[in-house]
Amino acid sequence: MFIISLTYKTALENVERFIPEHNDFLDKYYSSGNFIASGRKEPRIGGTILANASSRNEVEEIIKEDPFYIHQIADYEITEFIPSKYNEHFKFFIQNS
Rank of each mutant, 00 (worst) to 15 (best):
E60R: 05
R44L: 12
A11L: 12
F92P: 15
D27W: 00
E58G: 12
E77D: 04
F2A: 02
I70H: 07
E13V: 15
P20D: 08
G33I: 09
I82S: 14
M1L: 13
Y76R: 06
R44A: 11
K41T: 12
A37L: 03
N96V: 07
E80N: 15
I94Q: 13
L12W: 15
M1Q: 01
I49R: 05
K91R: 10
N57C: 07
F92E: 14
L26Y: 13
R40V: 11
G39M: 04
Y30F: 08
T7W: 07
I62E: 00
Y30P: 06
N57H: 02
I45W: 04
I73N: 02
E80T: 09
A51Q: 00
K9D: 06
N87M: 15
I45M: 12
L26Q: 08
A51L: 00
Q72S: 14
P43K: 13
N14R: 09
H22N: 05
A11C: 09
K9F: 09
E21I: 07
F35S: 02
F81T: 06
P20T: 03
A74D: 02
F35M: 04
P43V: 11
E16W: 09
K85N: 14
I62M: 05
P67G: 11
N87L: 08
P67F: 11
E80R: 03
N23W: 03
E80Y: 05
I3H: 04
K64P: 06
D27H: 05
F93L: 05
P20F: 05
